[in-house]
Amino acid sequence: MGRNKIFTKIKKPFLWPACVVLFMALPLVVDSNYITSVLIVIGLYTIIVQGLGILMGYAGQVSFGHGGFFGLGGYAVAVLTTRYDWPPVLALLAAIALPGLVAAGIGRPALKLREFYLALGTMGFGILIHTMFNEAGKLTGGPSGIAGIPYLSTGGLVFDSDIKFFYLVWAVVLLVLFGINNLIRSRVGRALRAIRESEHAAETAGIDTGKLKLKAFIFSALLAGLAGGLYAFYVTFVSPAPFGFNASVQFVLMAVVGGLGTFFGPLLGATLVVLLGEFLRWAIPLVIPGAGGEYEIVFFGLILVLLMIYRPEGLGTLGKILTSPGKKKPGAAEAGIPGGGRGYEVN
């Protein structure tokens, strides 16, 4: 264990920047719009799941309503740029602020709920927002949505191509990763982890659990809104469809697949789920002729079920478990969320 740590300490300063540089060169080397667009989608989802990961993995709360926050961000950009002619950057700021404000409003009472009451409450919230997108026809364009969103531009820089957008999205991902890296090592991060392990114990230790959970909730909503705003600028079109309950489930799936409470979990989870989705969209019509890619949801559901039964701690901790044979592998019973998931130290 000790030697391993030294190794990583030597390698780390060079390893990560090298990986980042290699990754950032990817769209220049592989000249494929398809791959670039898939990478952009992975980036956007990673941003959301990073926030959700803080909420689920560190604060130990669940949300089945983040599709709603994602949508609020998207619609904020769409409505403000097309109906009120706001400058794109201001609209993007609004896309971050609006879900944050909504989360601040509903968070305090909602986070008093526990377990399935919280799951039901957030799910209800997500459905409500989704219904509003469909029903508030004058503002949101109803089921057909809003088209003609301008490109994101600031000063002379216009994000009008996939490659430019790729750099923008992944710069945001890196920034968020960096921010979260600092956050989880701080006093706040330790306090959040204490809440996950035991809310009562955390309270006894003088942590204002209500306030911290609320902050984690708002933080996750801000990030979902940011991703939603970027999504709207990328696709230049929004409709209610991508912001429904299935989206919320997909985000939870990504968070769980990647491993809750792990540093790279959100990135891993978003990547695996998006790649799996792309694979299924290609493979399903081959196996079942005439079937469209929408059946991928069957597999997403099955994977979620299997993971929760056999590996609730996600795939991100696979290596960790192998390197520490002394530590017993947590079973479904111990590692269920919240209060489980184990506090694997990530370094």
Partner: peptide
């Protein structure tokens, strides 16, 4: 049954997974 000792929340996520799978199956 295999997850009977898991927390209520884990179980609810399992049933959500089942529900979207069944819905996809019905669509199929």
């Amino acid at each position: 049954y295999p997850a009977r000792r898991a927390s209520g929340l884990t179980l609810i996520i399992i049933t959500i997974g089942l529900s979207i799978s069944l819905r996809g199956l019905a669509l199929l």
